[in-house]
Design a protein around this nucleic acid. Structure first.
Lengths: 212, 212
DNA sequence: TCTTGATTTGGCCAGGTGGCCAAATCAGGA
DNA sequence: TCCTGATTTGGCCACCTGGCCAAATCAAGA
């Protein structure tokens, strides 16, 4: 009976459909950008009819918000799971920065989607608070690692964490700007990580001696 | 004869109309984002009829490319004009970073437009090379200043410049993520600049002693 | 004066957009 | 068994999008 063209889809929970759409969204956004990823483009990528979009999310803004939160959580999880707990401060800083760069290199389009989502959120009132939340998220993870692993004071770890996150962002942005196929980009990023880790270690040493 | 509603616009050169549209574009993009800035929204902001858009630019992509180049040139000019030529390395680094932060604080929407344009360019084949060109532009300016002003070797200045630009990007991004009205953002950015300048000076000192 | 070319303008087009809905379909408990 | 609520689906809507064009208007040189 179930001939191919008249085959009706088996029923799934709304949650299952939601995750399908979210995964399809990040794929298609990585290919054509956030702005060009229409509700129809997303449902088509997921192999679902257009009507399912409104049924599962109601509004495109809802999809964007949920996608942003999911992606940030995923990045935060990967970041947290690669934080080193032993070694010198310099080694730990290098490993942290390198792990983040490796994550971006593993799937550059995904990071492009994150940056595109952040830009979109900035000019969307309902999503305007998300970039701040995202930044605080990364900051907290790095700070707590520095406190628990280096045993430094909260105040000192905070200042160091801010520089780590800022440098991380800048190094990743530079690598992305050059493009994944650019050869020099990788070497420059590696050198930046090496140099930044050294600079931060020297800064930490200087600061722990002096009280500034 | 020239009754208000039938008053025809006085003729201007295409270039004049182009700059009108470009200025209107950056205004409206700062308000509603790059993606939402349609050709009609831009012409309306400029007080021109819709047809003038195609007459002046032909394609929206052309407007985007020209706008990107203009904005990058403007940022680069402001950056170059505020580069210090005297003082200790630490003072010069602080001034450079602070000048860039002040530029962003002077008109945050403009920086949002830049980031949004960069994200858009990444998923637009015709504009894909612009982000790399932008990054190299800033890098070159900072590097040349370090060479001429600090007299350091090209190789050393290059590595320092990369860290300066990366840190600059990260600090500005952090400030923007918090939002212009957030009080703590300003203090944190100032502290980051202070700390980063110190870290880079220590790095430079260490590197000039050792040969790594 | 006439003519040539640049500029202005409003309207037109095919196509895409987000959102919505009612009818069809199904799963599972009463 | 029937029935209630969840799910699916295709089509509909008003609106907006980028691009285009021909007629109207004007400036300035021949």
């Amino acid at each position: 009976m179930t001939s191919p063209e008249s085959a009706r889809r088996s029923y799934e929970s709304v949650q299952a459909r939601r995750t399908q759409l979210l995964q399809a969204a990040v794929r298609v956004m990585g290919r054509i950008g956030v702005a060009a990823a229409s509700t129809r483009a997303i449902t088509a990528e997921a192999g679902l009819p257009h009507g399912s979009f409104h049924y599962c999310f109601g509004t495109k803004e809802k999809l964007l918000e949920e996608l942003f939160r999911l992606e940030v959580n995923d990045v935060a999880t990967q970041l947290a799971s690669h934080l080193p707990t032993s070694g010198t401060l310099r080694e730990r800083l290098e490993l942290t920065l390198r792990a983040e760069l490796e994550r971006v290199k593993r799937d550059p389009d995904r990071q492009h989607v994150m940056l595109d989502l952040t830009a979109t959120a900035h000019s969307t009132p309902a999503l305007a608070e998300l970039p701040g939340w995202e930044h605080d998220r990364y900051l907290q993870i790095v700070r707590e690692n520095l406190v628990s692993s280096a045993g430094s004071h909260d105040r000192r770890a905070e200042r160091l964490a801010v520089l780590v996150v800022a440098g991380m962002r800048g190094i990743v942005a530079a690598w992305l700007a050059r493009g994944p196929q650019h050869d020099d980009a990788e070497a420059e990023a590696e050198r930046s990580i090496h140099d930044l880790a050294l600079a931060l270690v020297l800064f930490e040493g200087e600061a722990s001696a002096d009280g500034s």
